[in-house]
C-alpha cells in the first residue's frame, strides 16, 4: 500500500518506534497532571532516565535491567520534584523548569566516560509466523518489548482511570483537592505516587532513546522530547487513547516529513514542524469552546498548590 511513493505500512511501523519515547513520557505526565500536578521537568527526568538506563544496561549487560535503571533515575528526579512541591509547597512551574536544568547538568556529569560505549542490543520479540501476515505483521508483530509495554500502559491507564477506585481517587484529587481532602483522601500521597509513576515512565522513555533509538550516550540527547510530551498531554485533553494518537501524530509528522523528502517531494520543513503545535492550540480552543467557559478540559486543580489548612 503506497501513497505518493511512501509505503504506508512501513511508515506506520517506523513511526511507532519513533514515537515510543514521547508516548511513554506523555502517558506518565498524564497521570501526574490528572492528579493536579503540572511537572514541567519531563525533559530533565527523561535525560536522567537516558543516562541511568544506559549505565545500568552497560554494567549489567541486560537491556531489561537498563530500562529498570532508567525508570529508577526518572523516579528519583520525580521524588525530588514531589518533595519540593508537595512537602515544601514550592511553585510547580518554577520547580519543573529547575528540574530540567538540573537533570541536563547531572546527566552529563554521570555520563562522563560513557561516550562511545555501546549498550547491549534490545531485540524485537519473536512472534514466529505472525510476523509474516501482510500489513498487520510489520505493524503489530515486529517490535521490541518496550513498544508493547508502552501500548499496554496506555490501555492500563485508560482502564484504571475509567473503572478503578484508584482512578476515581486520582481524578478527585486532581479536580478539587480541598474536597478530596475533606473526604479523607491523602492528597499529597496520591500526588507523590502519581509523580513517581510519571517519573518512571519519563525515565523509561529516555532509556528508550539511549538504548534503542540511538543507541549510545551523548549529552543532551533527548533534544527536547520532554517538551513535546508535555504538548501531547494537552493535545490529548488528558485522555489516554488520545495521548497515543497524539504521540503517533507528533512522532508521525517528523517521520513523514523526512520520508517525503527521501521520496523526493519538496516540503516546507518549518511549516510542517510547527503544524502539530498549531493543531494542539486548535484542539484546545475547540475543546474549551464546546464545554463552555467553566470547564476547560484540564484537571481543575492543575498547577495549584495544595495546603490542608484544617
Amino acid at each position: 500500500m503506497t501513497i505518493g511513493g511512501i509505503d504506508l505500512v512501513v511508515l506506520i511501523a517506523s513511526l511507532m518506534v519513533a514515537s515510543t519515547p514521547i508516548l511513554l513520557a506523555a502517558i506518565g505526565e498524564l497521570i501526574a497532571e490528572k492528579s493536579g500536578v503540572l511537572n514541567l521537568g519531563v525533559e530533565g527526568m527523561m535525560i536522567m532516565g537516558a543516562i541511568c538506563g544506559f549505565v545500568a544496561a552497560v554494567h549489567s549487560g541486560s537491556p531489561v535491567v537498563g530500562f529498570f535503571g532508567g525508570a529508577l533515575g526518572g523516579t528519583a528526579m520525580a521524588l525530588l520534584f514531589a518533595f519540593l512541591t508537595q512537602i515544601l509547597l514550592s511553585n510547580q512551574v518554577a520547580t519543573g523548569l529547575a528540574l530540567t536544568l538540573f537533570g541536563l547538568g547531572l546527566s552529563a556529569l554521570i555520563g562522563q566516560g560513557y561516550n562511545g560505549v555501546r549498550p547491549p542490543q534490545t531485540d524485537n520479540l519473536n512472534f514466529g509466523p505472525l510476523t509474516q501476515i501482510p500489513v498487520l505483521g510489520p505493524i503489530l508483530f515486529q517490535h521490541d518489548w518496550v513498544v508493547y509495554l508502552s501500548l499496554a500502559l496506555v490501555a492500563g491507564t485508560w482502564a484504571v482511570l475509567r473503572y478503578s477506585r484508584v482512578g476515581l481517587i486520582l481524578r478527585a484529587v486532581g479536580e478539587n483537592h480541598d474536597a478530596a481532602h475533606a473526604l479523607g483522601y491523602r492528597v499529597r500521597t496520591v500526588r507523590t505516587l502519581a509523580l513517581m509513576f510519571g517519573g518512571a515512565c519519563a525515565g523509561m522513555g529516555g532509556a528508550y532513546i539511549s538504548l534503542v533509538r540511538v543507541p549510545q550516550w551523548s549529552d543532551g540527547m533527548t533534544a527536547g522530547a520532554g517538551w513535546i510530551a508535555l504538548a501531547i498531554v494537552v493535545f490529548a485533553s488528558w485522555r489516554p487513547w488520545r495521548v497515543l494518537l497524539g504521540a503517533y501524530i507528533f512522532g508521525g509528522v517528523t517521520v513523514l516529513q523526512l520520508r517525503l523528502q527521501a521520496a523526493g517531494i519538496a516540503i516546507p520543513v518549518q511549516i510542517l514542524s510547527m503544524a502539530p503545535y498549531l493543531i494542539t492550540i486548535l484542539v484546545l480552543v475547540i475543546m474549551s469552546a464546546r464545554r463552555g467557559r467553566a470547564a476547560i478540559g484540564a484537571p481543575a486543580s492543575l498547577g495549584r498548590i495544595f495546603h490542608a489548612s484544617s
Binding site: 512501513v10 511508515l11 551523548s218 533534544a223 523526512l258 520520508r259 523528502q261 521520496a263 514542524s273
Partner: peptide, 26 residues
C-alpha cells in the same frame, strides 16, 4: 537521495532520517 534534518545534533531525528532513506531503498 538527500534528507534535510535542520539540526546538527538530534540523535533521534537522525535515526528517523536514516530509516526514511533505507525505506526508500538506499
Amino acid at each position: 537521495k538527500v534528507v534535510w534534518v535542520y539540526t546538527w545534533f538530534d540523535p533521534a531525528k537522525e535515526a528517523d532520517a536514516a530509516q526514511a532513506l533505507i525505506n526508500e531503498g538506499v
